[in-house]
């Protein structure tokens, strides 16, 4: 058994109307799975819950087709089909007594909307991602502001959060 000194890590904590069973919080993080591989996602998050994470969150989960991160893998809750697929994740997490969380996301001008073909949204009109000149690499800060906009940009415009 564990040293009782570590008991504080296992004290439940009420957050709003729900109670987290312990202090281990899997923050929202990208999985490369998202809405393309919902069963893969549900199984992976379920194993986290089985392993004792008291709160298990989704990755960034788009609220609307104006926030479409294609070609990067992302979750979505646009319609009833998405509800069914995301429910698989919530169920897999609940099966082990953990809380399931979802990170509602709108990318604004970080979303190029390559698949949805919606006009990117932002506080004002600026270059969006995945259009010419707007895909700065994680390298020279030729466009310092845009480069900061894509701090996890890669040579292929890699984005996401882990």
């Amino acid at each position: 058994m564990r040293d009782p000194r570590f008991d504080p890590l296992f004290q439940p904590l009420k957050i709003g109307p729900v109670t987290a069973p312990n202090r281990f919080w899997q923050v929202p993080h990208c999985s490369g799975m998202g809405n393309l591989y919902p069963a893969t996602l549900a199984a992976m998050r379920g194993v986290k819950a089985e392993g004792g994470w008291g709160v298990v969150n989704s990755e960034y989960c788009s609220i609307h087709p104006t926030s479409d991160d294609t070609t990067a893998p992302y979750a979505s809750l646009w319609d009833e089909g998405d509800v069914a697929n995301m429910a698989a994740m919530a169920d897999a997490v609940h099966a082990h007594g953990a809380l399931a969380g979802v990170e509602l996301w709108h990318g604004g001008q970080r979303s190029g909307n390559v698949l949805s073909r919606a006009a990117p949204l932002a506080p004002e009109s600026l270059l969006a991602e995945n259009v010419p000149l707007a895909k700065p690499a994680d390298g020279p800060r030729r466009y310092p502001r845009l480069a900061r906009l894509a701090p996890r940009g890669g040579v292929a415009g890699a984005r996401g959060w882990l």
């Binding site: 809380l99 509602l104 990318g107």
Partner: peptide, 20 residues
């Protein structure tokens, strides 16, 4: 929809250079 899917925690996401 997140509630309908059975989630217990919902984020408002104002970080990482996204819209907010």
């Amino acid at each position: 929809r997140a509630r309908a899917a059975g989630f217990d925690v919902v984020y408002v996401y104002a970080a990482h250079t996204y819209l907010l």
